[in-house]
Design a protein around this nucleic acid. Structure first.
Lengths: 230, 230
DNA sequence: GACAAGCAGATTGTCGACAATCTAACAAGA
DNA sequence: TCTTGTTAGATTGTCGACAATCTGCTTGTC
């Protein structure tokens, strides 16, 4: 018998595809915070009935990127400065934990994957593809979570990530300028390859603070304005 | 005008009630891990159509206590020893963080609420109501999360709690014996009232370890047997 | 002019029926 | 005997229509 590793085939239900479409639209900022999602309109655009659409929306509500008010509608979550602050402060704690757990499990495959994801970020940066850059940067950062061998931790981080990605996308969209050309992840990657775990943890915490300050000031600006409706 | 604090009225949709019913059935162990949920049967029992039931199930899937396989069915999540281990190790980290954040925010209202929840646990213990005891103990523990003023942290903990409650319920059900009559929370409460934050963090960590060891050995026992189907 | 009542219109929540898919049992052939 | 093809039954996924609810406007009254 041939030794082939078959991966599970794709979940091919309309619901799953709708979830993916909506999530992407939200995380890239195509759907703005506070915006209402009209079920009839969306279902007609996607050429599906409202049943699978509504089920998909329920999932995204639970995922924390939509919010629902009975008989009023389902909306993209509003982004407050406090939300960002909360997410980031928790992220610091989780980062430390993830690095601690991943540390003894690092092997050649880990380093290879690390380089690969780092390369993906650099390529997106070269191509000036900001959306993809955010995506790849978060994937690079997510490796320590995937490697930590703790399913609950990973799940928690993925939920956090959704929001962070949304925040970053909004930020990028708002300032509407080219992303930093220099590679800010260089040190992070090399520290993860090194021998000093504390140093890696410290850097993760400080590196995060950098982007964070900028993001926060942006969010504080949003605070003043009313959120945009449908 | 009278100064009354009106709380928001109940979300009166079938879906919300179904979610509550199902969640309770799962967390109290009435629905066993691995068991399949037959949509038609449940919808007939509840006298609702499958639409709101399915939407409710989608929410619980995302909440992490159900799992769904397209065209095959929706099942109560299986409990593995590793899951429990993962949840607990993350819980320790979160506890430390929550205590740190709550610490400077403690006030009279906090202490009152602490006593009140502590009292609820003691009463449930006196009444030999194991289900209620688990519920109240987790609510007592949850106070530091509610007080930490970090919505993302609170949300994360609530997700974790669902599982923990499920694990504890299974455990209680399995050993089918009276719960410890002595009050293990006494020290925890007094430490939270005290002045030594580190001591409170340390105790939270160690107190958790106690129950944990027992729970883990129970879960390891489950590991061997196949999960029960519908 | 201010305000309450009532009436469309639009939107969400729910229902019952149909289509797509899976499972298990059985038959046919190598 | 083992494998493969077929079929019937059950269950999940999806659809279109109806009911319940909300929102904004209009109307009438003071």
């Amino acid at each position: 018998m041939a030794k082939v590793d078959f991966s599970p085939i794709a979940d091919t239900t309309r619901r799953a595809e709708i979830v993916a479409l909506l999530r992407r639209a939200i995380l890239t900022g195509q759907l703005e915070p506070g915006q209402k999602l009209n079920e009839l309109r969306i279902s007609e655009q996607m050429r599906v009935s409202r049943a699978p659409l509504r089920e998909a929306m329920r999932e995204l509500v639970q995922e924390g990127i939509l919010t629902s008010i009975p008989y009023a509608g389902t909306f993209v979550v509003d982004v407050t400065a406090k939300d960002i602050d909360d997410a980031y402060s928790l992220n610091k704690v989780l980062d430390e934990f993830a690095i601690e757990r991943t540390w003894p499990l690092r092997d050649q495959r880990f380093f290879d994957e690390l380089d690969q994801r780092h390369e993906a970020v650099k390529q997106a940066t070269r191509n000036r593809d900001t959306t993809r850059q955010i995506e790849t940067a978060l994937q690079l950062h997510g490796l320590i979570y995937e490697w930590a061998d703790n399913s609950v931790l990973l799940e928690t981080w993925q939920r956090l990530t959704s929001r962070l990605q949304m925040y970053f996308a909004l930020h990028q969209q708002a300032r509407n300028e080219a992303v930093p050309a220099e590679d800010v992840h260089e040190t992070y990657v090399s520290l993860l390859k090194g021998a000093d775990m504390r140093a890696a943890q410290r850097h993760a915490r400080e590196h995060i603070d950098l982007d964070f300050e900028e993001l926060l000031s942006y969010a504080r600006g949003l605070e003043q304005r009313p959120s945009k409706g449908a």
